[in-house]
Design a protein around this nucleic acid. Sequence first.
DNA 1: TGTGCGATGTCCT
DNA 2: GGACATCGCACAT
Length: 196
Amino acid sequence: MPRDFFCRDPVTLAVDLLGKLLVHESPEGRTSGIVVETEAYLGREDRASHGYGGRRTPRMEPLYGPCGRAYVYVVHGRPLLNVVAGPPGEPTAVLIRALEPREGIELMARRRGVRVERASDLKKLCSGPGRLTQAMGITREHNGVDLVEGPLRFEDVGYEVREVVRRPRVGVDYAGEDALRPLRFYVAGSRFVSRR
DNA sequence: TGTGCGATGTCCT
DNA sequence: GGACATCGCACAT
């Protein structure tokens, strides 16, 4: 996707990322999946956002950088993939929470350490923000990489999203009122959405 | 140099 | 539905 696609407010971007194909061409092989669940983080005004109140640390630099780059940070020992949104310079981002696996199922299963023997096992691969990074081979080394061009990128493959569901975000209870805001988005009816 | 804590996942009941 | 493993940060000493 072109730079302009990412340089929009995080809510719009979170919705429009649904249905796009996330591709990673790594030395181990190619993996990809359709984005089916996202969350918007609104930056300075959003208590759940790392950028709340303009907070800024060396690790967070990509969050303040150009839109369309990755902001990867580790929580509970697992890397999470965020896409830096607009407007440029604001610490806004979209968290990728779940994918519908498409290419490289075997490689994903190997990275995840699970066996895929029936269709229902596919949910174990990318249904969760920490799961999908592991399956796709995304590590904290990807913090700051450009997603417009390069081995890790989003592509429009014509996937039609019929209906989008809005819900409060997951795991941000500490954020008070902001925890109640419906900033989690997922494809209605997708069985690859993370539970909870 | 030390300490606390998650934008989680998994296993167990 | 609940316990806990986990580990890199951020911030306090």
